[in-house]
Design a protein around this nucleic acid. Structure first.
Lengths: 157, 157
DNA sequence: GTTACTGCAAAGGTTTTGCAAAAAG
DNA sequence: CTTTTTGCAAAACCTTTGCAGTAAC
C-alpha cells in the first residue's frame, strides 16, 4: 500500500537526527503516508494509528508529530477552528507548492499542487528584504459543489 | 488618538445588525483601532481593554470578537501556535490585500498591504472552479534583522 | 418592562508534562 | 547498561457556556 521507500527515508532522517526508531513512530509515519488527503488533526492521526497499533498513546502521537515537524517532514497548518493540523511534505514538485481551498459553506478542504507563488516570492524577497523559506496560502470561498447547490436553491425560492 | 469616524461606523454596523452598543463593546473596538499592529490574541486584546475598562471580563471580549468576526469587521487568523488572532479589516486598499511575513527566528510578524494575489485568484477561479471570497497568505522565513544578525554571528565564529 | 448583555465560575476541548516502567541502541 | 521513549493521568492551556444579576433600548 504505502511506498516502502518513503518510510525508509523518513526513518533514516529520524536516525540521522539522533532519534530512536520505535514501532510507534514507524506506525505514525506509515499512517501519515497512507493518508493521501492530509490535514488531519493530532486526534485524527491518533485514531488511525490506533487501528494498527492499538496500545499507542495520544501523547506519543503529539510527541512524534513534534519531531516530524522539527525535521520538516510534516508541516503544521492551522485554519481558524483552533485546531492544529499536520500535512506530510511530499517529494518533488509538491513539497513547497501546496495551497488550500477552504469552502466556507461545507468546510471541505481541497488542495492545489501547483506553484502559484514563485513570482510573488520574488517580490517579497526584493521589496521587503525578507528571505522566504516557506509559505502558507489558503483561499476561502465557495467550492464548485456549493456554488451549484446555491444556484439550485435559488431556483426553488 | 483613534479616528472617531471608524468607531462610529463600526457602532452603526453593530446597531444595524441588532446588537446593543455597550461600553464593553465600544472599548474593545477602540482598543482594536488603537493597535495598529494587529495580530493580537483574545487574551492580549483583553489585557489592553482592561486598561481603560478594568471590570470587563475575558468572556465578553471573546463574545465581542465573535460578533465582530461575524460582521466581518475583524478577521480571524491563525498561525501554527494554536492561538487564534484577530485583525481589524481596515478600509480601502488594505481590506482584502493583507499578507503576513512571519520570521521563524524572532517570531516577529510584519504585514504587507499590497495586493500580490490578483493574478493568482484568477487562476484559482478559472482552473479550479472555486469562487474566492478571501485569502490568507503567510510567508515564513527570515526577516531583514535576523538575516543581519546571523551574518554578524557567522563573522564571529 | 423586555430583551440582550455582562461577569464569574465552571465546563469543554486540545495540548503538554511528570513520572515510573519499558524498550532501543 | 545508558539513554531515550512510552503510556497514563494530571496539569495547563485556550475557549465556550450556564446562570443570576445588570444594563441597554
Amino acid at each position: 500500500m504505502v511506498d516502502d521507500k518513503y518510510v525508509k527515508k523518513i526513518k533514516q532522517q529520524l536516525h540521522a537526527a539522533g532519534f530512536k526508531l520505535t514501532p510507534q513512530r514507524e506506525a505514525t509515519v506509515v499512517s501519515l503516508l497512507a493518508n493521501e488527503a492530509g490535514h488531519l488533526s493530532a486526534e485524527e492521526i491518533y485514531l488511525r494509528v490506533k487501528q494498527t497499533t492499538p496500545d499507542i498513546g495520544l501523547a506519543t502521537v503529539y510527541r512524534t508529530l513534534d519531531i516530524l515537524s522539527e525535521l520538516r517532514i510534516v508541516n503544521k497548518v492551522s485554519f481558524t477552528d483552533g485546531l492544529v493540523r499536520y500535512d506530510l511534505r511530499r517529494e518533488g514538485a509538491q513539497q513547497h507548492f501546496h495551497h488550500h481551498l477552504l469552502c466556507v459553506q461545507c468546510g471541505k478542504i481541497e488542495e492545489i499542487h501547483e506553484d502559484l507563488l514563485a513570482d510573488v516570492e520574488q517580490v517579497v524577497a526584493s521589496r521587503y528584504h525578507f528571505q522566504v523559506t516557506d509559505h502558507k496560502l489558503t483561499f476561502q470561498g465557495l467550492c464548485a459543489d456549493c456554488q451549484r447547490k446555491n444556484k439550485n436553491q435559488m431556483a426553488k425560492d
